[in-house]
Amino acid sequence: MIPEVVARSPYVSLVTYRGNGTPVATPVWAVAEGAELLVWTRDDSWKVKRLRNDARVTVTPCDVRGRIAEGARTVEGTGRLLEGADGLGRVRKAMARKYGLRFRLMDSVGALVRGGKRPHVGISVTL
Score class of each variant (00 low, 15 high):
residue 87 G to M: 07
residue 115 G to C: 03
residue 66 G to Q: 00
residue 33 E to F: 12
residue 91 V to T: 12
residue 29 W to V: 00
residue 113 V to T: 00
residue 31 V to L: 00
residue 83 E to N: 09
residue 55 A to G: 14
residue 32 A to S: 14
residue 64 V to A: 13
residue 89 G to W: 06
residue 123 I to W: 02
residue 34 G to Q: 06
residue 100 G to E: 05
residue 101 L to W: 15
residue 38 L to C: 05
residue 83 E to G: 14
residue 60 T to L: 03
residue 93 K to S: 14
residue 100 G to T: 05
residue 41 T to P: 01
residue 26 T to I: 12
residue 93 K to D: 13
residue 62 C to I: 02
residue 21 G to I: 11
residue 25 A to G: 10
residue 97 R to S: 12
residue 29 W to K: 01
residue 50 R to M: 02
residue 81 L to P: 14
residue 50 R to E: 06
residue 110 G to L: 05
residue 72 A to D: 05
residue 66 G to Y: 00
residue 81 L to K: 05
residue 66 G to T: 00
residue 124 S to H: 08
residue 121 V to H: 12
residue 53 N to C: 10
residue 94 A to P: 09
residue 110 G to E: 06
residue 71 G to Q: 06
residue 82 L to H: 13
residue 84 G to R: 09
residue 114 R to Q: 13
residue 110 G to Y: 06
residue 57 V to Y: 04
residue 111 A to P: 15
residue 88 L to A: 03
residue 34 G to R: 07
residue 40 W to C: 10
residue 98 K to W: 03
residue 111 A to E: 11
residue 101 L to I: 14
residue 34 G to I: 05
residue 28 V to P: 08
residue 92 R to F: 07
residue 23 P to K: 02
residue 67 R to C: 07
residue 69 A to T: 13
residue 56 R to I: 00
residue 98 K to N: 04
residue 121 V to Y: 07
residue 96 A to R: 14
residue 25 A to K: 08
residue 40 W to D: 11
residue 31 V to R: 02
residue 41 T to Y: 00
residue 89 G to N: 05
residue 84 G to V: 09
residue 57 V to D: 02
residue 76 E to W: 09
residue 120 H to V: 15
residue 75 V to R: 05
residue 54 D to E: 04
residue 55 A to F: 08
residue 78 T to R: 14
residue 72 A to K: 04
residue 43 D to M: 14
residue 55 A to K: 10
residue 121 V to W: 07
residue 63 D to A: 08
residue 37 L to I: 01
residue 25 A to Y: 04
residue 66 G to S: 01
residue 123 I to T: 02
residue 57 V to W: 04
residue 41 T to G: 01
residue 91 V to I: 10
residue 86 D to E: 15
residue 33 E to K: 15
residue 77 G to T: 04
residue 124 S to R: 14
residue 107 D to G: 07
residue 83 E to V: 10
residue 48 V to A: 01
residue 37 L to Q: 01
residue 23 P to M: 01
residue 71 G to P: 06
residue 48 V to N: 01
residue 78 T to C: 08
residue 28 V to M: 08
residue 68 I to H: 02
residue 95 M to R: 02
residue 25 A to T: 11
residue 121 V to Q: 11
residue 34 G to T: 10
